[in-house]
Structure formats: C-alpha cells, structure tokens
Design a protein around this nucleic acid. Structure first.
Length: 262
DNA sequence: ATACCTCCCTGTGGGC
DNA sequence: TGCCCACAGGGAGGTA
C-alpha cells in the first residue's frame, strides 16, 4: 500500500505523536520486521532517547533520536505497513510488530501484515545516508528540469522509470498509473521518446496527483480518478467511458485507458 | 542499461 | 466453510 503520500502521512503521525517525546519502552513483538538489527540492540539504542524531527525520502521514513548526531530509526512500510499512534493501554493488533511506548502515555506502533520490509537502525547520520544512497531524488521535490533529464536518459518504458526508486523515489504502482493516465501517456511508451510538451504535462500531472494524494495520505480511490476504477469488474475510463485495459508492465499490474493514453 | 524471474511474507478470493 | 492457486499499491538479487 504505502507510497510517498502514505509515508508522508506516517511522517505526520510521528511528528505529532512522537517528536519531542522520550521512548520509555521498545517492545519487539515480531523480530521478523527487524533488518540488520537485533531486538536487544534496538532496545538499547532507542529506550531513553527522544524523537527529533522526522523526515522522509521516497518511501523511507527517518526518525533521528535526541540531537540527531547519533542513532536514527529508519522505517520502510513495504506493501502493508503503517505507523499508528494510540494510547499505550490499548490492546495491540495482531500485526503490530514493534511498539514504542512514549513518556506521555501514547504508543507508536509499526503494524505490518506481510513483513516485506521493516525497521532498520542507523547508528550515525552517515549510516542514514548510506541506507538512502541508492535512491533518486524525491518525487515531491524534484524540479522540472531534473525530471525532464530523467526521461531523456531512459530507453525503457516510462512506467518502469516512474517506479524505479533509484531514478525517482516515492512513486509506486498506483501513483504511476494515475499520473500516466492524468497525463494521457501510455505506460509502455519509451521514456526518451516522449515529446517535451508531453513530458512537461507528465511533470505537472505528477505534482497535482501528489498534492492531492499527500493531503489524503494515500492515493484516493475517487471515481474521477483512475484509481477509483481499477478494481471494478468491468472498469471504464472515468474520462472517456471506454473500457480500461490491464496487463503487466515491469512485473506489476498496470491499468490504463488505450483510448486516452497514447 | 534494462527486462524478466524468483524470492521475501501473509491474507483473500475465486475455482474446483 | 475444504484445498489449491493466483494475486496484492513493497523491494532485492540474479540472469540474459
């Protein structure tokens, strides 16, 4: 599930619920979500420290502790992860894998059904940089010139480019389909063959889709968006009414309108 | 450089 | 209310 807008929402959860709060207790209920760190190390590193200002890059959420010069928690939410804030005495959900009890009676929970990604501990700011080193620029902050350069440098399908985290960080399958639909560009078009005017339109569509999705903290399944139709039994394009098509592009289910998208 | 495959996990829904 | 399979909005690693 989580793409850039969802993770931006989790950043907000962490900011409102965690920032400035001290972690009283780290409860690892399922160590299967810990990546390159043991439950013991996580406890020692985090308990007694407080959350500084969190930040996001692509689909990663970074939570530096104390003054930011030492360890940081680095979250990735995979397909099914979420960060939730709840009163500490609320019974945990089955999929709450790690619980962080705060000093104000609240509790941050990393909830994740599938455990495809998880939580890392960066020991230093340099470690954080190393974890994020392979990511391209964030989709929310890249400028138009940088975006046009990405397209020009890429031979393969434009959808593969949008989804490639090392080229552009933050877009997932749903957002990519939505943005391409909005810009009327077929997902399998080679990126470098997209005309400049279309490419500018694609950049604008990305910005608008992201703005709305960030406000909703998800890709909203509105009926006038593609996303609102992709799971219909016989999906039709909300713009032209023609049937939507669906097939795999770069290994992911891809929905588009063959009539509108060229 | 890029596309495809498998794998990592769990749960759900459809077909039988 | 059983079994089996494909599939789901994540990514990594290996191959051609």
């Amino acid at each position: 599930m989580p793409e850039l807008p969802d993770v931006e929402g989790f950043r907000g959860v962490l900011e409102r619920c965690g920032q400035g709060r001290r972690v009283r207790k780290v409860d690892v209920r399922d160590a299967g979500v810990l990546r390159d760190v043991t439950a013991e190390r996580l406890q020692v590193a985090v308990e007694g420290r407080s959350f500084a200002e969190p930040r996001r890059h692509g689909k990663f959420l970074v939570a530096p502790l104390d003054d930011g010069s030492g360890p940081a928690l680095v979250w990735h939410f995979g397909m099914t992860g979420a960060l939730l804030c709840a009163p500490a005495d609320e019974p945990p959900h089955d999929h709450d894998r790690v619980l962080l009890t705060l000093d104000d009676g609240n509790r941050l929970g990393y909830r994740d059904q599938r455990k495809l990604q998880g939580i890392r501990l960066a020991e230093t700011p340099d470690d954080v940089d190393a974890l994020l080193a392979d990511l391209g620029p964030d989709a929310l902050t890249i400028d138009r010139a940088g975006f046009l350069d990405l397209l020009a440098d890429r031979r393969g399908a434009v959808k593969s480019l949008l989804m490639d985290q090392s080229a552009l960080a933050g877009l997932g399958n749903l957002l990519s389909d939505e943005i391409l639909w909005r810009a009327r560009i077929a997902p399998d078009r080679p990126a470098r063959e997209i005309e400049e005017a279309e490419a500018r339109g694609l950049f604008t569509a990305m910005g608008r889709v992201l703005d709305t999705a960030v406000r909703d903290a998800r890709v909203p399944p509105r009926r006038n968006w593609l996303t609102g139709h992709r799971d219909d039994p016989e999906p039709e394009c909300p713009r032209c009414g023609n049937p939507l098509d669906s097939r795999r592009v770069s290994g992911r289910r891809t929905v588009w309108c063959p009539h509108c998208q060229r």
